[in-house]
């Protein structure tokens, strides 16, 4: 089964002159770490927003583990989906523990079981000593790690991460990437977007490169690199398909 299957997806925002998505189609098999890559304005965030059910598609279908986003399965999809947004989607005035207990409560967890679960995650991410510290006083790396914990409290089968390593130090990045491998090793799927193509090449088993709202190419990083004789890495493949023109 596919973790995600996007078929002929179109999206034009109200008032926009050009469409954000124009017939985008791709799918990722269940249990893989997949990368959705593309230059600025390619439509990655719109695609993720439609997958999560935050934005309605103008046309096309999105299926998450076979559940159709547009056919009343939205609540079921939410249960199997964990989102790590690019922003630190936490309350800066609350401590890490308070934030995570709050989001845990929203998922329906409570009491000692929730607190134990939160503390276990904090320990796994090296944050156990910062549990009572306000998020606003955390370093960038600590915030990113807590941001990930908030998305995995309900142990989603598919974890979607938007630039999870942006602005973090090498140690934090290494820990986050190792976490993604470990999480995937438990049989979960991961969809990841990043501008760090070296990182994507390192951890993704399958990548889809998109530009101007359409899929440009899809395959494993190694297969994509091997298919183009003049390309040595994923970055070369990316530039080959998306060009050198600046995107603002």
């Amino acid at each position: 089964m596919n973790s995600i299957a996007v078929n002929d997806l179109h999206k034009t925002y109200a008032g926009a002159l050009t469409p954000s998505l124009q017939g985008l189609s791709f799918s990722f098999a269940e249990g893989k770490i997949a990368g959705l890559l593309g230059p600025n304005g390619a439509g990655k965030t719109t695609t993720i927003s439609i997958i999560c059910g935050l934005v309605k598609a103008s046309a096309g279908t999105v299926k998450v583990f076979g559940l159709n986003q547009e056919s009343g399965s939205r609540e079921q999809i939410k249960r199997v989906l964990g989102i790590v947004p690019q922003q630190i989607a936490l309350f800066p005035q609350l401590t890490a523990l308070e934030n995570l207990v709050y989001f845990g409560n929203l998922y329906g967890f409570k009491g000692k079981a929730l607190k134990d679960k939160v503390m276990a995650h904090l320990e796994a991410f090296g944050l156990e000593n910062a549990a009572s510290k306000e998020i606003g006083k955390f370093s960038g790396g600590m915030k990113r790690r807590t941001n990930i914990i908030a998305a995995i409290l309900h142990e989603p089968k598919l974890l979607v991460l938007d630039e999870p390593t942006a602005g973090v130090d090498v140690q934090s990045r290494s820990m986050i990437l190792q976490f993604l491998r470990d999480y995937n090793a438990k049989g979960n799927s991961v969809l990841y977007t990043s501008h760090l193509l070296e990182e994507a090449q390192q951890i993704c088993e399958d990548v889809a490169i998109m530009d101007e709202g359409k899929l440009v190419v899809q395959g494993s990083p190694a297969a994509l690199v091997n298919a183009l004789p003049d390309c040595r890495n994923l970055e070369d493949v990316f530039l080959h398909y998306t060009g050198h023109a600046l995107r603002d």
């Binding site: 609540e75 989102i83 947004p85 690019q86 922003q87 989607a89 309350f91 929203l106």
Partner: peptide, 19 residues
């Protein structure tokens, strides 16, 4: 809305109305 916690709350199963 700006820091994304609204998105996180909306993505959690259950009615946002209760929040």
């Amino acid at each position: 809305r700006e820091d994304g916690s609204l998105v996180r709350m909306k993505l959690i199963p259950g009615n946002y109305g209760s929040i």
